[in-house]
Amino acid sequence: MTETKTAPEAEHTARVEDKLYNVRFKTDEDQSHLVVMNSNLCAQCTDKPCTTFCPVSVYRWETGDRKISVSYEKCVECGACRIGCPYFNIEWRYPKGGFGVQYKFG
């Protein structure tokens, strides 16, 4: 076994945005396949779990606009938000045929 020197590594906080550079997407520029249906429900929602459990952080609470912003272009289509939104307030469809994430390894 070759001995590699352990460099004093930077804190392990690789941002998901950096990881997504390696992921291939074919973005549907015309429409989002994810729609938050009623922003009033989001305003009432105390924990806003979609903003934490989404593995690519598609959802962000915009304090000024008092609504959830949806960066659907980086969605990897796992479906967690479809099941995890406590109000079932996310309309979740597949992107149009051939669009969305296109994995190289899977």
Partner: peptide, 21 residues
């Protein structure tokens, strides 16, 4: 479990980094 992610508010990418560390 997704219910555990919801309860703990852990982000899955942060969990991955925790795992790798």
């Amino acid at each position: 479990l997704l219910s555990d992610f919801i309860k703990t508010k852990v982000n899955p990418n942060d969990l991955m980094e925790h795992f790798k560390a």
